[in-house]
Simulated scan of single mutants.
Amino acid sequence: MNRDAAPWREDFRGGSREAEDRLFRAMAQAISPRPAARPDAAPVGTDRADRRLFHAKTAVGITDAALMVDRALPAGLVVGHFRPGAILPAAIRFSNASAIPQADGVPDMRGLAMRLAIPAGGPHDFVLANFPTALARNAEQFLALAMAAAGDWETRLARLASRIGLWESRRILAHLKASLKLCPSLAHEHFWSASPYLWGSRPVRFELRPVAGEPPPPILPAPGDNALRIEFASRIARRSVTYRLALQHYCDERRTPIEDAAVDWRPRAARPIEIATLVIPRQDISGREGRWALEQIDRLRFNPWNAPEDFRPLGSLNRLRRFFYAAGDQ
């Protein structure tokens, strides 16, 4: 650990990683109709992800983006393939968060998944959403949410409250109300990791911010099932779309907790540091090649555990998600 870094730790359920793995495998089986596979058996290739627990609909798929690392990258952030001036090929999937494919004009959260092709071989996946925190604080709340969502819609709040209490259930509903919104343009959305990840020896959260100067979005979303794709196609036919990648460092367990994904890491406590630019080049995504790219991206299974050890996900919510991804449900 860096001499100047704040001390941190992960708290494993049952007192050890092995005990927690057994518990989380059982939790994944409680939701998945298929047996939870070993996490190290999760494919990272192009098996069609047609049984996602969330983010069912691919709004836009890009196969030829690039993440351009800043030449002035601070020395403390030089880790693995993140080197000053590095250019990393990237595949991008924009999605609607709903588990059921629906029209883009429906209020919803939006996701951005990014797969980097790294020099050492293999992928490095980033999974983000356009809200700074997660619905569930931890693994137990994620299980309760998934179980409630799978049952009768009219009794979901009562069933959720029976598992996590009325106060936390109301907090989650308030979070949903705030996060389910209309989206005029994906190019103007701000995306966050919402949970921590390792960056070398230090925990971070990361975000992708739209670059200032992007042409303004329409006042209201366009009508139609694929309005986001149509708007993005019109925009990217004229110019590249860019985002800035920024990191926030862990500072202490109260303001930047590892095990509570519902706490916002506020900039006052953890100042975001920009380190790279994501460039989606100008192109035609409405033609034959664009439709081919959409199909290729839709077949990918983005998984935050597809990462070198120096960038592994942290916290119980991420550790449980490892088993859901392994079972092919996300």
Rank of each mutant, 00 (worst) to 15 (best):
A174S: 09
D11K: 10
G61T: 10
R299I: 00
F94H: 15
E274F: 07
R137N: 04
E168N: 14
P267Q: 09
A178F: 02
F12T: 06
L294K: 15
R254Q: 10
A86E: 07
A103I: 01
A327G: 14
P221T: 04
N138S: 11
F94V: 05
I258C: 11
R170L: 13
G151E: 03
R271G: 01
L245W: 09
R34C: 06
G121H: 09
A222F: 10
R137S: 14
P267D: 12
F131I: 11
S316A: 13
A233V: 05
S95T: 14
P210E: 05
L220Y: 02
A37T: 12
E231D: 13
L77H: 10
V241H: 05
Y250Q: 01
M1I: 00
E207R: 13
G224F: 07
L173N: 01
A66P: 00
I92F: 02
R17V: 12
L220K: 01
S98L: 05
L186S: 03
W167I: 07
L73Y: 10
G224D: 08
G165A: 04
N2D: 10
G290V: 05
F206I: 01
A246Q: 04
A136I: 04
L77G: 00
R319G: 03
E189V: 00
A19L: 08
R244A: 11
R71E: 11
R322I: 01
R93I: 03
V78F: 00
D104C: 08
P39Q: 08
N306F: 10
P257C: 07
K181R: 12
L300A: 06
S185A: 12
F311M: 13
P313S: 08
R229Y: 05
M114K: 00
L317V: 09
